[in-house]
Write a protein that binds this DNA or RNA. Structure first.
Lengths: 126, 126
DNA sequence: TATCTTCTGCTACAGATGTAACACATGGGC
DNA sequence: GCCCATGTGTTACATCTGTAGCAGAAGATA
C-alpha cells in the first residue's frame, strides 16, 4: 500500500490516537499544515476507500481507525525506497548511509541498539 | 528534488550511462517496463523541465546527462522517507529495521562495513 | 535526390493528489 | 420542538504522473 505525503501525515495521527474523528486529526495537524476541515475529511475518506482506514459512526460523527498497521506501512515505504533508489537491497542503503549521511548521537545509539538486537537474534538462532 | 517512480527508473539508467539518448534509455528499460518510445521521451523531457537533467543536441538527437547526482537524489529520498514515516530521524528507521526487517547476509556485511566506517570517522574526529 | 527511418515537439487523456467550497443532515441544548 | 453548531456527502478544480499518438523535421541510404 502506497501512501501519499498528506496521507502519511494523517495516518501518523490516526496510529497514535485511534479512534479519531476528522476534527481530532485537524486539531493535531492544523498548525503544521494549515489544512481546512474539508481537506482532512477528504484525505480520511480516501484512506477509507483505499482500505487503509475503517470508519465507524457514533451519533453523527465518524471515527476512524487504522486497518493497516504502522509497521506494515513502514515496510512498504522502505521497500519502495529500496526499489527506486538502492538496487532493491538494504546493503546498498546502509552503505550509502555510512558514507554519505551524518548521524546524530541519538541515531548512533539507535544503531548500537540495532546491533545488539541482531546479535542476539543470531546467537539464539545458531 | 522529488522523483516519481518512473523518473527513478529513467534516472537510474542515466546515472549509469550518461550521456544517453531516449532510445538508449528505452532499450534498457523496455523489458522491465514495456514503455513506448514516446513515454521515455516524455519522462526525460519532464526531468529536463524539473532541472534534473541537462540536454544537448548532436545531429538531430538529444543526449541527456544528470544535473542532480545520484547521491543527492538518494539523500532527498531518504529524507522524505524519514519525514513521512519515521519521525524524521534515522534512529527511528534503524530501530524499525532491527526489529522488523529480515536482513540478508549481504545486508549484514554492508552493515558491518558501515560500522567500521562510522567508527573510523569517530576515531579520527576525537 | 527521393525515400526511409528515426527523432523531435506538441497534444492528449485518465487517474492520483492537494486542497477546498457548498448544500444538506442531525444531535444536543434551550 | 426548534435552532445552531458541527458533521456528512458531493462536487470541483489545478497539478502531477503514467502512458502514448501524431505530424513534421532531419539524417541516412540507395
Amino acid at each position: 500500500m502506497k501512501l501519499s505525503e498528506a496521507e502519511w501525515k494523517a495516518m501518523n495521527i490516526v496510529w497514535r490516537k485511534a479512534p479519531v474523528s476528522a476534527r481530532d486529526v485537524l486539531e493535531d495537524v492544523e498548525c503544521e499544515t494549515g489544512w481546512s476541515y474539508s481537506t482532512v475529511k477528504t484525505i480520511l475518506t480516501r484512506l477509507c476507500d483505499k482500505g487503509v482506514l475503517s470508519m465507524r459512526k457514533r451519533a453523527n460523527t465518524s471515527y476512524f481507525a487504522p486497518k493497516l498497521s504502522e509497521n506494515q506501512a513502514r515496510k512498504s515505504a522502505i521497500r519502495n525506497l529500496l526499489d527506486n533508489a538502492f538496487d532493491g537491497t538494504f546493503g546498498s542503503l546502509l552503505q550509502h548511509v555510512a558514507k554519505e549521511e551524518k548521524l546524530s548521537n541519538k541515531d548512533r545509539d539507535a544503531l548500537a541498539e540495532m546491533l545488539r538486537e541482531l546479535d542476539e537474534r543470531k546467537r539464539s538462532a545458531s
